[in-house]
Amino acid sequence: MMMADDDKILLAHGGGGRLTNELIRSVIISALGNYTLSKLTDSAELKIGQTDICFTTDSFVVKPLFFNGGDIGKLAVCGTINDLAVGGAKPLVLSLSLIIEEGLELEVLRKILHSAAKAAKQENVEIVCGDTKVVEAGAADKIFINTSGIGLKLPKADVGFEKIAAGDKIIITGTIGDHGMTIISHREGTKFESDLKSDCAPVSEICGKVIEALGDDIKFMRDPTRGGLAATLNEIVNQTNLGIEIEESQIPVNPTVRAAADMLGFDILNIANEGKAVIVVSPQKAQKCLEICQSCEIGKEAAIIGQIIQGTEPLVELITMIKGRRIVPMPYGRELPRIC
């Protein structure tokens, strides 16, 4: 679908699915495009003097601001750290900018900043610059945060879509859908609300360790945020022209998350994560990679969920619990609860 001139931006254009892709390709890249940007990686790789660095940015507009497992402050720090980490970089410094709606309680702001600072400190990352704007009541929803980050490329890191080959294994570093279902349940006020917890966490430890141990056997990493696992895997097949086959029975899912998703009619594969990484690794080193993931605190439930295949078409296929097969399409962009 091409965007026509009289089209408007829909919420779904921000959902990380097909519509987001379309917006980026047909509007943003065409206006700003350059070699680095058009690679569409999580972070830009730049050479400054003799040093390879990664540079990335992300904005956070989550509602509610505070949720079980985190808040917008922690999310803003972890999100950007994760974009650097999956690019094979060690996060160094962050910027943090605030757009605050008139009327926000100071106490709320303090709590958010405190939690951002704590998350940064745990990762040994400093927040070194920032900006603050206040807008009229109604012009923003309480608070929006943007963070940018710079990381040092790990010397052994050599990740990218072009490295992926048929036979490579796909690892997810833990259960999927936790963050998205926590936020959605909160918003919709479902009965699962109190039992769900966002997975919001930095993945830099896992990413750093697997790169350190396995070097270029680690082919590609990505944090499956908006659009979930489905969006990340579809991006891989689109960029590589290879196929992917995953097994439903191998994908770790927290039972409460599954129950909440079933109740609202959501496909768990489309639901956002904030503390997970998808790792594509050579078949020889897959087991080793899995063990390293599982040795990390947030990677205990890591699993090999499938592999890259030389299919006839760039499709993601799921082998279901009952041993049926289906295609996992790119999500549209915004999951809506169903009544039927």
Binding site: G265, D267, L318, I319, T320, M321, I322, K323, G324, R325, R326, R338, C340
Partner: peptide
């Protein structure tokens, strides 16, 4: 419609 969704998500036709 919910059955339709289940049938597709479970890949029932192919099974």
């Amino acid at each position: 419609g919910t059955h339709t969704v289940t049938i597709f998500r479970a890949g029932l036709r192919s099974a």
